[in-house]
């Protein structure tokens, strides 16, 4: 397979996944905003957290964005200036898909293209929050459909594997990011009543883990449950460990279970992350230690991503 094609498949998958997860975070936040009063100041101020999770807070502030529901929601969902706006993610995904049309199922292209055509003709200027919410739901459903098409019709060969690696890396990264931001926020808001409860509840909702979590743990949002659940609960498909395990497994398949000289670095970086997990898994981390671990992990992920790109000669 051409390196350019592999790279497009990888980025196509990452962009679909990013659009979906940003849509979920924003939707969850907009729904919570309706119940703001109950949580007081905390909930009001945390548009900042959402911007940090879905985009770059620095960019946003430089552009003079204000942390109100309306401004932040439209920045995250629609702003063409925001590299990671959902609209841009979908356009990138379509752009990449178009470049590899002969490597993806036809239905994948039809569905993505149809969605693109319908939202391209929208006059975004008069969108209110309610319209944005519909858009967010559509985006998540789009992603489910696309994943379904991949799972049900693609050969389990290289193209499939590059798509999956993109998706799992993106997903693992997003979970780490949500956790990182939430650790910060709970630290800042130590004095606020309900702050802990509110932030960890949000984290679970942002990562589509709330109902799954309730099946295993009491609904108290105890960080000593929530954090390990999101980091290393092996059965939760958005936990960092689950995602990284799948990255590793897929790379293994791509390489037919063998480590060659050109893939050595890649395996080394993956092994390093696994060993880190083993190290922290059975010890109780303090909030600071968790924060440090997450910082390191995000760096490791960036490294894996770049080693991965050079292993397969992405341009």
């Amino acid at each position: 397979m051409l390196s350019r094609v592999a790279s497009s498949l990888f980025w196509m998958a990452r962009n679909v996944e990013r659009a979906e997860s940003n849509a979920r975070v924003l939707e969850a936040r907009l729904i919570n905003a309706l119940e703001t009063q109950e949580y007081g100041k905390v909930a009001l101020s945390d548009w900042e957290a959402v911007v940090e999770i879905c985009a770059s807070k620095l960019d946003y502030e430089e552009k003079g964005g204000s942390f109100t529901a309306e401004a932040a929601a439209s920045y995250i969902a629609l702003d063409p200036e925001n590299l990671n706006s959902i609209r841009n993610c979908l356009e990138n995904a379509r752009f990449n898909a178009r470049a590899v049309r002969d490597h993806i199922p036809e239905d994948f292209w039809y569905v993505l293209n149809e969605h693109y055509l319908s939202f391209r003709s929208e006059p975004f200027t008069d969108w209110n929050t309610r319209r944005i919410q519909t858009f967010l739901q559509d985006t998540q459903r789009l992603s489910y459909t696309l994943q379904g098409i991949i799972e049900s019709s693609m050969l389990r060969e290289e193209a499939y594997q590059f798509i999956k690696i993109g998706k799992w890396l993106e997903r693992g990264e997003k979970t780490a990011r949500v956790l990182n931001v939430m650790c910060e926020k709970t630290k800042e808001a130590e004095q606020e009543a309900n702050a802990n409860y509110y932030y960890w509840l949000s984290a679970l909702q942002f990562l589509n883990g709330y109902s799954a979590y309730l099946k295993r743990f009491p609904p108290t949002m105890d960080p000593s449950h929530v954090i390990p659940f999101l980091i290393s609960y092996e059965q939760f498909p958005r936990s960092i460990e689950y995602c990284m395990e799948h990255v590793r497994e897929t790379v293994m398949k791509l390489e037919n279970g063998q480590v060659s000289h050109y893939s050595e670095d890649l395996f080394k970086s993956l092994d390093y992350v696994s060993s880190e997990f083993m190290r922290i898994k059975f010890q109780k981390l303090s909030k600071e230690e968790t924060g440090l671990f997450l910082d390191r992990f995000q760096n490791d992920l960036n490294r894996i991503s770049s080693v991965f790109s050079s292993t397969y000669y992405f341009v």
Binding site: M1, L2, S3, R4, A6, E158, Y312, Y313, V315
Partner: peptide, 18 residues
């Protein structure tokens, strides 16, 4: 393929694959 996917080495054309 696009032009960027090909290269010529010793008068032989190759494509850049993974």
């Amino acid at each position: 393929v696009e032009g960027q996917d090909l290269l010529v080495k010793d008068d032989v054309v190759y494509m850049k694959t993974v």
